[in-house]
């Protein structure tokens, strides 16, 4: 937990210093290393009842609503990582995340992190072995997933913590894959 707070603090300071849209993060999709760029002006909120709107004066919803997910444009003096962090501190169950793009442009499609990590373990590992291994990293299983053998949803906080947790697991070299549980723009056709 300490590490996460430290990471948040470091990123926060970077974001204050860096121009918006220029801060990038990497994550792993299977074995592919991918890059996303944070949009410092936007936060995503995933609960049906908003905590952002009443808390952040001047926040405006952009691009309609994606199910229960809203994307908020923040007032100019507020950075998304800070707001997301603050919302979670103020509202214990708030699910708020910075918004990311696959391309280095603020108009590209949105991604955000409502929390948790999708981890696929080696097929030879038993359930008990997996839970044991995760508890060694101080992580907990949310649920076993159905889409692949030995796939688990592992608990993490929303936002950048999700990327950090996913990368931390993947970079142990002990798992098949570990990716943040992204929310991304998908639309009804």
């Amino acid at each position: 937990m300490k590490k996460l707070i430290l990471l948040t603090l470091v990123l926060t300071s970077v974001l204050h210093a860096a121009p918006v849209h220029k801060t990038s993060y990497h994550w792993y999709d299977g074995s592919q290393k991918k890059t996303v760029w944070i949009n410092a002006e936007l936060v995503g909120e995933f609960d049906e009842t908003s905590v952002v709107q009443p808390s952040v004066q001047g926040a405006q919803q952009v691009r309609g609503q994606f199910g229960t997910t809203r994307i908020w444009r923040l007032p100019k003096n507020q950075l998304s990582a800070n707001v997301a962090s603050r919302m979670r501190q103020q509202h214990a169950r708030a699910s708020v995340s910075p918004v990311f793009h696959d391309r280095n442009t603020p108009k590209a499609a949105f991604r955000a992190l409502p929390g948790d990590v999708i981890v696929v373990f080696k097929p030879t590992w038993s359930d008990a072995q997996i839970k044991n291994w995760l508890s060694g990293l101080n992580l907990q299983v949310v649920e076993k997933m159905t889409h692949e053998k030995n796939a688990y949803l592992v608990q993490s906080a929303p936002g950048l913590a999700s990327i950090a947790t996913a990368n931390r697991i993947y970079e142990t070299g002990q798992v098949v894959s570990s990716s943040p549980n992204w929310w991304s723009e998908r639309e009804a056709k």
């Binding site: 995933f46 994606f66 199910g67 229960t68 997910t69 409502p114 948790d116 999708i118 997933m145 159905t146 889409h147 692949e148 796939a151 949803l153 990716s179 549980n181 992204w182 929310w183 991304s184 723009e185 998908r186």
Partner: peptide
């Protein structure tokens, strides 16, 4: 709630 986890589920 269009997350990857919900999608594959």
């Amino acid at each position: 709630k269009g997350t990857d986890a919900n999608g594959v589920n």
